[in-house]
Computed example of a mutant assay.
Amino acid sequence: MSFTVLMAALVIGHILADFYWQPMSWVNNRNTRHFRAKKLYLHVLVHGVTTALIVTWWELIYGWQDVLRICGATAIVMVTHYLIDLAKSYSSKGVVPFIFDQLAHLAVILLLAIWLSDNSDFFIAVWQWLIAPSTLWVLCGYLLILSPSAVFIRMMLERITAGFSATGSLPAAGQSIGMLERVLMLTFILLDQFAGVGFLLAAKSVFRFGDLSASKDKKLTEYVMLGTLLSVTVTLFIGLAINYLRA
């Protein structure tokens, strides 16, 4: 319980300090001036103060142990946050550096919460969860609906439509949309929320109706319908199989 409370509080503090209490001008200053950016040090200080307040509050609730733990936790967050943000300032601006940046911060927070709460059994519990058959089958399902399913659906569409391709769309947009669509559908199926699958299909139909009506192209309409139905069929089959295997 104490670990969960501390972890949640630290994550909330990180979100507030990183997104709500950091103006875009600070980010631009860091990206242009790097280690010379004064705003970077101010941002790190905000994270340090936030961490110190959270850890102090947590210590008071769950039994005061040592002020050095608060100082140590604050120093760890400030130093690691400075190094991670500094490294990000030299990277190319995009979604991948952003994801790695946030994952690095969350990893620090996780290790910090484990240390402060003396939760030594955490890694054992995580390892047991990772090697559980149900977890492995779910992982297998998500892997199948991404690249392998995309290849299968593309091959089926090329065979059925004799090489027809929709022009005027973004490169690989259809494949990316299909992958995201199957991830959402599989998630709904694994959670036994089949109504969510119906909602997803209805929402997609609403967005595509205008394009298909305006194009007045029967081949395009059939192509979209075939792609959608193939995607749904493959995902339903995989999802139901995973539910059966992990039962």
Rank of each mutant, 00 (worst) to 15 (best):
M156L: 14
D85S: 05
V79F: 14
V138H: 03
S165I: 09
L86Y: 11
V95T: 10
L136A: 11
L116A: 03
A162M: 11
L83S: 06
L116W: 06
V79N: 04
S89W: 05
I109R: 04
G168Q: 04
I131K: 15
L157W: 09
F123G: 00
L146R: 04
T135K: 05
G163K: 02
M155F: 14
C140K: 09
F152Y: 03
L103T: 05
F123S: 11
S169E: 12
C140A: 15
S147V: 14
Y142R: 01
F164R: 08
I160G: 01
Q128S: 08
A87H: 07
A132V: 03
T80D: 04
I76R: 09
L106R: 12
A104C: 11
V77Q: 04
K93Y: 15
H81F: 11
L103I: 10
F122H: 09
T161E: 13
T161D: 13
G141T: 08
S147F: 14
I153N: 10
L130C: 12
F98L: 14
L139R: 05
F123R: 02
L144G: 01
S149M: 09
A166F: 03
S149K: 12
L110H: 05
G94C: 05
L112G: 01
M156Q: 09
Y142P: 00
T80N: 13
S91H: 13
Y142E: 07
S117V: 05
Q102F: 00
C140G: 13
L143P: 00
V108H: 04
Q128E: 15
F152S: 11
S134T: 12
A150L: 08
D85Y: 02
S134L: 04
S149T: 11
G94T: 10
I84F: 09
L143K: 02
A132F: 08
T161G: 12
L157T: 05
L139I: 10
F98I: 09
A113V: 02
V96P: 00
Y82D: 01
E158I: 09
F152H: 00
F122E: 04
W129S: 08
L86N: 03
A107R: 03
V96R: 13
V126L: 12
I131L: 03
D121C: 08
A125W: 07
V126K: 10
D85M: 02
Y142Q: 06
S89K: 03
V95G: 00
A150R: 01
S169C: 12
P171M: 06
L86I: 07
V126E: 07
A113N: 01
L110F: 14
F164L: 12
S92D: 15
G94R: 02
L144N: 03
L130I: 11
K93G: 00
D85K: 07
I124R: 12
I109Y: 08
T167W: 06
I84R: 08
A113T: 08
D121Q: 11
V126P: 00
S134N: 09
I114C: 04
Y142D: 08
V79D: 06
C140N: 00
A162Q: 13
I160D: 01
W115K: 09
V95Q: 02
K93M: 13
V126A: 15
W115H: 10
A132M: 07
S117T: 07
S91C: 13
F100T: 12
L110D: 05
